[in-house]
């Protein structure tokens, strides 16, 4: 999981008004959020909502509401971001049928026309972004090859950062059952990795 200390420090600085750390803090979680948002969007919603749009909207709301966030555990920030993403997705679902919105139309990050907005969350070069996107797409492709329960437990453990006890509570299983499920899921994921590159 992420370094709790650095996340805590970045949040602390951001809450103190040091907005320069904003890109660092949110980029740190962007891959996890992309994967999470991808699976939270229904197939129907993916037809009119882009993952990037949800990601940018989530970051903007988090930036605005960071004062309300209280750091409790290493996973609490990711849980908070996930809950914001859920709200953003729910809001976007209400817009279904009206018109497709793009990030640039509603996200008020800093641009020439909006110089007071926060620093864009992604300041990387297109080639770096493309390489990262391919990496995440490759991960999603492999996750999609897993049985649903295997994929779910990996998402809960590695993307959302829940402990086995927390996963057990969410799924209504015993922790031992969750441990077995996770073990088998990881084993299958490993087989998928090996089947791609055998050396």
């Amino acid at each position: 999981m992420e370094s709790a200390t650095s996340t805590f420090s970045l949040i602390d600085r951001l809450k103190s008004g040091d907005t320069a750390v904003f890109p660092a803090l949110f980029q740190k979680y962007s891959h996890r959020l992309v994967v999470l948002i991808h699976y939270r969007l229904s197939p129907e919603m993916r037809l009119f909502v882009e993952v990037d749009d949800v990601l940018q909207e989530t970051f903007l709301k988090a930036f605005r509401d960071i004062g309300n966030f209280t750091y409790r555990t290493p996973g609490s920030f990711m849980s908070w971001l996930a809950s914001i993403a859920d709200h953003v997705i729910a809001d976007m679902a209400r817009y279904q049928g009206r018109h497709k919105r793009h990030a640039a139309e509603h996200v008020r990050f800093r641009t020439d026309s909006n110089p007071q907005g926060p620093e864009p969350a992604d300041t990387k070069t297109p080639s770096v972004l493309l390489a990262e996107k391919e990496r995440i797409l490759a991960l999603i492709k492999r996750l999609n090859m897993l049985p649903e329960d295997y994929r779910q437990v990996i998402l809960l453990a590695k993307v959302e950062g829940f402990s086995t006890q927390e996963i057990a509570m969410q799924l209504g299983k015993s922790t031992e059952s969750v441990s077995l499920l996770l073990h088998r899921a990881v084993k299958r994921f490993r087989e998928l990795l090996n089947s791609k590159s055998s050396q």
Partner: peptide, 8 residues
């Protein structure tokens, strides 16, 4: 998996 999820 963790490395794939971390932003480089």
């Amino acid at each position: 998996i963790e490395h794939l999820l971390e932003t480089p």
